[in-house]
Write a protein that binds this DNA or RNA. Sequence first.
DNA 1: GGGCACATGTAAGCTGTTACATGATTAA
DNA 2: TTAATCATGTAACAGCTTACATGTGCCC
Lengths: 191, 191
Amino acid sequence: MMRVNQTETAVLGALSVAPMTGYALREAIREVLGHFWSESFGQIYPTLANLEHHRLVTRRGSSRPGSSTFAITAAGRARLTELLGQPIQPVPPRNGLMLRLFFGRHLGPEACRSLISDARADARRRLAQYDTIRHQLEADHSHQQDHPYWLLTVWAGEHTARATITWADQALAALEEMDAPGNQRNERTRR
Amino acid sequence: MMRVNQTETAVLGALSVAPMTGYALREAIREVLGHFWSESFGQIYPTLANLEHHRLVTRRGSSRPGSSTFAITAAGRARLTELLGQPIQPVPPRNGLMLRLFFGRHLGPEACRSLISDARADARRRLAQYDTIRHQLEADHSHQQDHPYWLLTVWAGEHTARATITWADQALAALEEMDAPGNQRNERTRR
DNA sequence: GGGCACATGTAAGCTGTTACATGATTAA
DNA sequence: TTAATCATGTAACAGCTTACATGTGCCC
């Protein structure tokens, strides 16, 4: 099937914005791409070594800790464009919240409400973060050409977060109704 | 860190709805939970064997192909409730679409538009599917107690899909504007 | 009797995480 | 001088997918 190593894409992409150390790379991926991507050290360093071997990045300074910086080469940029053009690898979905809600009967309405409230709080937190990021983007004039694209991902995050919030409101209302005293149906299993 | 095997949860959950064979289990997970969960054969059978060993499920009929059906036991139900109550394992995000858009400068507006259109078409398809599922739910009276919970997950899918569609519209509009600077639009390749 | 859907498993291998080992630099 | 942070790497292992091996029952 020849699955493309997507770590390569993320690393080359990050280095296309600015040269940096492997450590900074991980921080950048965590803080900037963190809302939709993640990489661990165990992936980053072998990938960097491999990229260096293929001359797609160069190491400036010795390999002594604290002094080496990785920069993307022209060939690296070409490779990045090629990688970005490849079909998206679909990630098998694994949504723990939905799994719990689907079998929510075994948890009971109260525990489900708690899960949903947590998800809503999380979405609100993310929404606030996106706002901060947007302001930072507007204040930063050093990567103008990238900004329109970066904005697209921020928007996506905002739409998703808002959708989560409205869904949570609807879901909580429905669960309230389930064991509401209005219809004196089953008043049994409550704690 | 003792990560909980979430396959166990999915398998026990599915068997809590109805007894079935391993094969049917995989079909059920693919068709019913498919929008937010996935399991492969390589996971399901070892998990079933393990669950059987711990008396959380029983096998009815011999292990001869075509004749054995797995059913959840009382202990299995208890274990399911326990598993569902455990904290959600956060899955490291890996959104290939966002990765490509974030580095979209190297792809160009045209390719990005294409990616976003595809995502929108996908979301519309999902939306139609959720509609079908909702009607099936309303017509089916065999799992009344589960329905409210199942509906929650359908709603979540609908909200997410709708958010994707509105995001895509906004993003496409922004990209249109990008290579139509000022008011003179260049009417080249549009689909 | 050939093909297909159903059914159960195993093994190889890849991806990615976690933990560990090591050391430099800087600030308290 | 101690602790924290920066920095680079490796090794072990968990999780999951894919491909393979094997067999049954049924329908055309």
